[in-house]
């Protein structure tokens, strides 16, 4: 164990962990939203994220950008960012809706038992990632240098980059917007009504199918944003990128209290930071193992997650 490594690099490790955690948190929202309303773990959500990581690369490719391109100037960077975000959001949102329509809705119509949904979820997840794997010959694809990561704030030995700030700020802003939407709008009220009592919600005039579609769509939008941030941060993507980070995101959702939006944010940030600390303490090979031991310990004391389970519990 390398205590001095952790202590000496406490600042940088924490900031790096927060940035990673912000991506995990945005990703985790999709698991939590769907679970909150349907009590279903949508394993295909990891592929909703995956297609987002490719969607922005493809759009940038249309403009002639690849990993060897020159860095665009500031104005062009803003344009490319907007374009990449829109592409990822649209594609991830569409795939999320498609998964719901093709994989889950027919089962719901037939009153299928929960296990059937679980199998379909895993099947949809594998099918999409394998499709991407075959289409890309299982090669990884590099990300064009849209943003030049450079230090903008220095506190002691902690250098915070513009990219880290962008990622963390975007996650916080999206969380805030989503929280306002769920807790302060008519559609959000419908979502909470279905989450709290699906049968009486329908009998009060709530269109359950629309609420369910909306929830998948919202999860897809957030995953799309997370996907672009992931590309910019990691620099490459691959057909199994969704699977690996998806486990982190699902874990974060459970850690914060699945079904709970603010829990997803807290769980994501916490998991990111824990992993980063674990890497500093034990070496990066131990990143996942150490973080998961801590996760198990936390769940032993708070079995329903840090903030509890309910999507309806607005004032957690």
């Amino acid at each position: 164990m390398n205590f001095s490594g952790l202590i000496d690099n406490f600042g940088p490790l924490t900031v790096a962990g927060l940035a990673q955690g912000a991506i995990i948190a945005l990703f985790a929202l999709g698991y939590t939203l769907v679970y909150g309303v349907l009590r279903l773990i949508n394993f295909a959500h990891s592929e909703v994220f995956l297609v987002g990581t490719y969607a922005c690369l493809i759009i940038w490719g249309w403009f002639g950008l690849d990993q060897n391109s020159a860095r665009p100037d500031f104005g062009a960077m803003l344009g490319y960012m907007a374009l990449g975000l829109v592409a990822a959001i649209v594609v991830s949102g569409t795939v999320a809706l498609g998964v719901e329509l093709v994989a889950y809705r027919p089962l719901r119509r037939r009153n299928a038992p929960p296990l059937a949904f679980l199998i379909t979820a895993i099947g949809a997840s594998l099918a999409i990632s394998e499709f991407v794997g075959v289409a890309t010959h299982r090669n990884q694809r590099g990300v064009p240098p849209i943003i030049q990561a450079r230090t903008v704030i220095t506190i002691g030995n902690t250098h915070i980059t513009n990219l880290q700030i962008l990622i963390i700020a975007l996650a916080l802003v999206m969380m805030f917007v989503l929280d306002r939407f769920i807790n302060g709008s008519r559609l959000g009220r419908g979502i909470r009504a279905v989450a709290q009592n699906p049968d009486s919600a329908a009998l009060m005039g709530v269109n359950k199918s629309r609420v369910i579609s909306l929830v998948f769509l919202l999860g897809g939008l957030m995953a799309g944003i997370a996907a672009v941030m992931y590309d910019l941060k990691i620099g490459v993507t691959k057909y199994d990128a969704g699977f690996l980070l998806g486990i982190d995101a699902f874990t974060a959702a459970v850690l914060g209290g699945i079904g709970n939006l603010r829990g997803a944010l807290l769980g994501g940030l916490l998991l990111g930071v824990l992993q980063s600390w674990a890497a500093g303490l034990f070496g990066s090979n131990w990143l996942h193992a150490a973080a998961f031991v801590l996760l198990v310990l936390i769940l032993m004391f708070r079995p329903s997650g840090l903030l509890g389970e309910s999507l309806g519990r607005a004032r957690a």
């Binding site: 009220r189 009592n197 919600a201 607005a314």
Partner: peptide
């Protein structure tokens, strides 16, 4: 069968929606 975590007003607003 109310929406237990919503306020009384929100419960009624779901109907109004």
């Amino acid at each position: 069968r109310l929406f237990p975590e919503m306020t009384a007003l929100e419960n009624v607003m779901v109907g109004a929606d």
